[in-house]
């Protein structure tokens, strides 16, 4: 199976991943190769097999509803690219 450059562009957009124009072709080639590798999975019939999401069959542990976190804004925002008045700033969001 092979991926077209348009498909690569579409996926890159979904992943919000900037890719240089000259690299798209090589990504398409690499990804197509990986898809061929994956296609091997099709050789095995897996009907009726339960998909396995976790290595262990365990259930979720629950946390007591208690407030344990204090205000750490100053510390967290010290590493932020752009903040003002306690807010993270981004280019204007248009709805």
């Amino acid at each position: 199976m092979s991926l077209t450059t348009d498909e690569v562009k579409k996926i890159a957009h979904l992943a919000r991943l900037g890719i240089d124009k000259q690299d798209i072709e090589s990504y398409a080639k690499d990804l197509s190769g990986i898809l061929d590798l994956m296609a091997r999975m099709g050789e095995l019939n897996t009907d009726g097999i339960e998909p396995m999401a976790h290595p262990m069959d365990q259930v979720q542990r629950l946390r007591a509803d208690v407030v344990t976190e204090q205000d750490n804004r100053e510390k967290f925002q010290a590493i932020a690219p752009q903040v003002e008045a306690g807010l993270y700033l981004v280019p204007k969001v248009i709805e």
Binding site: L44, T46, P51
Partner: peptide, 11 residues
Amino acid sequence: YYIKAQKIRRL
């Protein structure tokens, strides 16, 4: 892809 891979993971 994803579900198939998880089934193989089980096997």
